[in-house]
Amino acid sequence: MAAQSRAAHPPGRFSRLTLRQRFYIVAILLLLPAVALRVFTAFYPFLQTAYLSLHKYNPAFDHNGPVFVGLNNFARIGSDPVVQASIGFTILFVVGATFFQLTLGLAVAHLLNAAFRLRYLARALVLIPWAIPMAVAALGFRWMFDDQFGIIPDLLRTIFGVQARWLIDPNNSKLAVVSVAVWKSTPFVALVLLAGLQGIGRDLYEAARVDGANAWTCLFYITIPMLMPILITTGMFMIVWQLAVFDLPFLMTGGGPGFSTTVIAQKIYLESNSLNYGYAASISMVLVGIVALVGVVGLYLFRRFDVSA
């Protein structure tokens, strides 16, 4: 039927092209919406951010448009304690959160992979923290960590005898924000690692057991080496994604007390809201630079382990 309908059409301009040329045109048409969307909302605005970062531009004062100032904005970052504090906390947040997401994620993945009756309930439960809005988690935990009315300080006090103030103490508030990120995203990591665990052949473990290996040696000499490429890619993904974290600290602590839990993204948000567009753009470029650096290191690590594995 298809052959008939094709023969019925008079040869148009399209069918005079070679098969290969026709494929190219189809490919371009198929890619067009996706590429257009990314150019419109990512690539083109990014070039503008790079341009703005070298200019002084506050639309409230600079009526003639951006004024070129070279690297002045970046020099200003060097003497801005809030930006430096926000870079420091962002790195602490990302490293701390990713470390615990990977280690606890590996543990949870083993639980999800264990043969027990409630396994499917566990697999449904694990999706929930990933799936609920970060805004809900951030505000919920803000209330749960509340020094007067929250249940977390109350439970810690009655069960473990821990007396601590959380969101009004600069150090403990950092700990609280990191722990919510771990709670929220460990399940996602666990699901990815679960898929990795299922890909490791049982025969490896059986052979090790015959040789007298216990659970710990299996973990450190089989599971972790076999999962290394996945651990690196997942870790990289979590680092890069969490470097841009905004909603969690913004809603949970508002960046405080003081600036103790202000992340780079929130600093950019604040500067943009004060219409310091040039300065906000230069902080954005620093953030992109950190992301790129992590990406290069991750790629190097991945190549090294992928070849050896």
């Binding site: 909302t41 990512a42 605005p45 503008q48 951010t49 841009a244 905004f246 993204a265 943009s272 753009a281």
Partner: peptide, 11 residues
């Protein structure tokens, strides 16, 4: 990998 916030103003 491009952070949403980094292109917010031009966008």
């Amino acid at each position: 990998a491009l952070p949403q916030i980094a292109v917010l103003v031009p966008m």
